[in-house]
């Protein structure tokens, strides 16, 4: 996946802090490997990134990050059950056609899944739609006709999907400028974050 929506570095730092030090990590849609490199160097983690884009694969190698070139639409059959302590799914789920299968797969290969995606119910987005236009923001920078985000969802939508798939929500919160938003996150945060486990 081409992670065009690379989370701002403050958000990235907050997400990195969710990963226990020393974890075995799989980063799905790892982009240029920035987050994984941080986890390896600062938190003693190990693992692999998964990327589809040629330039990103090369960028990961140039950073010394192990990367596997794979189209996430093809699933995660390469990876065994619970092969990783943590599987990161940062800003990729909304680009995938098989979102629900991928969510289950993410929970299958990791003991802990950390999922983050743009929250469509963030108030500026609601306002834009009320005004009759699709939102164009920092987190959703695309026009409706060229967005790679083929799935738009909200924090509450995702909670429902997680429960439908019998996943246990360990934690959920909003993310805004690197801060965790725990009060009314569905309206006050541009990004939604979930920590999930198989029930």
């Amino acid at each position: 996946m081409n992670r065009a929506l690379a989370p701002a570095s403050a958000d990235l730092q907050t997400l990195a802090d969710l990963v226990p030090p020393g974890s075995r990590v799989l980063d799905l849609g790892c982009g240029t490997g920035e987050l994984l490199a941080h986890l390896v160097r600062q938190r003693g983690c190990s693992g692999y990134g998964v990327e589809y884009d040629d330039a990103n694969v090369q960028a990961c190698l140039a950073r010394g990050i192990d990367v596997i070139q794979l189209n996430l639409e093809e699933g995660l059959s390469l990876f065994a059950d619970s092969a990783f302590d943590v599987v990161l799914q940062i800003d990729t789920l909304q680009n995938l056609r098989n979102t629900e299968v991928m969510l289950r797969e993410t929970a299958r290969v990791g003991r802990l899944a950390i999922v983050a995606f743009p929250n469509f119910a963030h108030w500026p987005n609601r306002l834009a739609v009320m005004r009759g236009r699709m939102p164009v923001t920092k987190v959703l920078p695309y026009q409706w006709y060229d967005t790679p985000n083929i799935r738009v969802g909200t924090l509450r939508d995702f909670r429902a999907l997680a429960l439908k798939n019998k996943l246990r929500i360990v934690d959920e919160f909003g993310l805004q400028d690197g801060r965790q938003v725990r009060w009314w996150p569905n309206a006050l945060a541009s990004r939604a974050v979930f920590k999930l486990q198989r029930a």
Partner: peptide, 21 residues
């Protein structure tokens, strides 16, 4: 190559894989 990759992943080896179009 993916068979090789899978075996290496199962063994937790350090491996990178590029599939060139």
């Amino acid at each position: 190559s993916r068979e090789l990759l899978k075996a290496m992943l199962d063994c937790r080896l350090d491996v990178s894989y590029a599939e060139i179009d």
